[in-house]
Amino acid sequence: MSTKSAVLTLLMQHPADFLSGEEMAQQLSVSRTAIWKAINELKKEGHSISSSPNKGYHYKKNDVLSVEGIQLALNQQTPKLHISLLNSSDSTIKNAKLAAINGEPENTLIVADMQEAPKGRFGRAFFSKAGCGIYMSMLLRPNQNFEEMAQYTVIMAVAVSKAMDRLTNVTTEIKWVNDIYLNGKKVCGILSEAMSDVESGQISNVIIGMGINFSIKQEEFPEEIHQTATSLFSNQEPTISRNELIAEIWNQFYAILSELPKEQFLEDYRSKSFVLGKEVTFSQAGKNYQGIAKTINQQGELIVTLADGTEKILSSGEISLSTIAGKKNPRL
């Protein structure tokens, strides 16, 4: 750990206290000059650190992304995450794929302050803004069959939704497959991709990526999505930091994984779905259908009953919902 990282961790661990340069130098076995340099580097990165000649240094809570801030908010039960923080990325999913190819360890998390070319399902672009969103992808190595892939996407949606609800005291909903909605507008999109081992026929790597609108003001969204997208803090100052939300998402995710094969997460997923019981229109194999969304099965597939009583099973990637309860569903 660098001196700068160690100093930041110390300050974050004592949010109500002032720490003197001498005290930190003794704890870290470095010089007072090294502490001073680290403090100045942190200030240049945007961290709010006040100083007093008689008291020392004090860290003021802010929303600067940091590896240290994420790590400190992780539960002890959450596995060690190998976190890489980027100022900007074309795509954190691409970064995670490269990490997989380069043999980076499991639980490698790529987090970017800004994503330059974000893409959602079916290659659709979505709006991003530096300092106001969370753009991240996780590299997992499950060694499972492709049939089990849907389990990860369902778990991730539940984890994100529960983390948002817990930290911000809101009630989010899930639009099948993996869009998170708040007050009828999209606040998060999730993508999962698998990399396979040809010889074993198993999934060697799973990459889960997401873009979260954290503190984008409602009036800042482009006109074409102004009525269909929102952020967690669209009309108020954030009550939590992005670091805290990132950590809580993965706390929730790994907590669910640790409970498998229990199926509570499927019940949570169904209870948060705003599609079930409603009329939906979709296309499958080039043909349009209309019916009632009845349930979500154990594989995370949507079961739709058509007017003639037949059922259609919809899997991720092969359909796009176009209508929910008679209203056109935005393609975000």
Rank of each mutant, 00 (worst) to 15 (best):
S161Q: 05
F122N: 13
I155L: 12
V206E: 06
S137I: 07
M195V: 14
M164R: 07
G209Y: 09
N183G: 00
V198L: 14
M156A: 13
I180E: 09
P118E: 01
F126S: 10
F122K: 11
R124S: 07
S196T: 13
T168K: 07
S161W: 09
M195F: 09
W176Q: 02
F127K: 00
V187I: 15
L191G: 04
S200P: 09
A163Q: 02
F146W: 06
K185Y: 04
S196A: 14
E199G: 03
I190N: 01
D165F: 00
N183K: 15
T171K: 15
T153Y: 10
G209K: 05
Q151P: 04
M114N: 13
A112G: 01
S161K: 03
V198C: 10
A157V: 10
F122S: 06
P142F: 00
T153N: 15
N107Q: 11
L139I: 00
G201M: 04
L109M: 01
K185Q: 15
E147N: 15
A163W: 11
A150M: 12
C188I: 12
N145A: 14
T168C: 15
E193D: 11
K129Q: 15
V206W: 01
K186C: 11
L167R: 04
T108D: 03
M149H: 11
E116M: 15
A125D: 14
A125L: 10
D179N: 11
M114H: 13
R121W: 05
D197A: 04
N205K: 06
T168E: 11
E147A: 15
N178Q: 09
K185W: 01
R141A: 08
